[in-house]
Design a protein around this nucleic acid. Structure first.
Lengths: 109, 109
DNA sequence: GAAATACTCAAGCACCTGCTTTACTAAAGC
DNA sequence: GCTTTAGTAAAGCAGGTGCTTGAGTATTTC
């Protein structure tokens, strides 16, 4: 069975690199092969393939070998997991500030 | 002037560590001093202070020295920036899938 | 004013990252 | 079948990360 618990360490670590974010960004416009993805970058194909492995290990990207080509596409579930973690913490804090604000304006009266 | 452009490299890098995510999580329930934050962890105060510095450099956390105590609280803007980056990429991809889906079911008819 | 508290600073160390290079394998194209 | 294309594997290296220890400096507290 597939592992559907995306590991936040790996996801955030993967997103911490600008090259990898650019790769994700490119893939959101449609699937692409590794060498297609590598073309715009000023680094070797080997380096880009290592970035793609990091992305795949994090669950952000799915890849599949078709003939001699490795096709890559985004896996939105892992993105959703990271987004949810952030959103939850942010709203917890913002709700706290709201409550605090209304307590203070109560006291003002 | 304050730098209000949160650097995504630093933000995601900061969130990639479980100790730092736990610190953020704790701070969403209210501000706390460094040693309060450090107490639950099985590591030296010095180590936790280094984590707090990473969080502060990323813009996720604001700290201020009050007497001999350093008080820390979450800075929701940096969280929002990271959340927005992810949300944008995810929805771009999901919209693409929707369009693709409707084209396919058009052809089915 | 002496002792305890809450950091701060800097050095040191094991391990991890982001590359490169070189050498290799497997599919496509001609 | 020979060449080009696309990727894989592994080693090596500079610089970064996540700790620790030890030695300091301000504030409080008693």
């Amino acid at each position: 069975m597939l592992d559907h618990a995306p590991d936040l360490d790996l996801v955030f670590q993967a997103l911490a690199d600008p090259t990898r974010r650019a790769l994700v960004e490119r893939m959101t416009t449609g699937p692409a092969s590794a060498s297609e993805l590598a073309r715009p970058f000023d680094m070797t194909l080997a380096a880009v393939l290592q970035h793609l492995k990091v992305l795949e290990d994090s669950g952000l990207v799915h890849t599949k070998k078709e003939g001699r080509v490795r096709m890559c596409r985004v896996e939105p579930d892992a993105l959703r997991g990271a987004e949810a973690w952030i959103a939850e913490r942010r709203t917890t804090w913002e709700r706290r500030l709201d409550r605090l604000g209304s307590v203070l304006s109560e006291e003002e009266r």
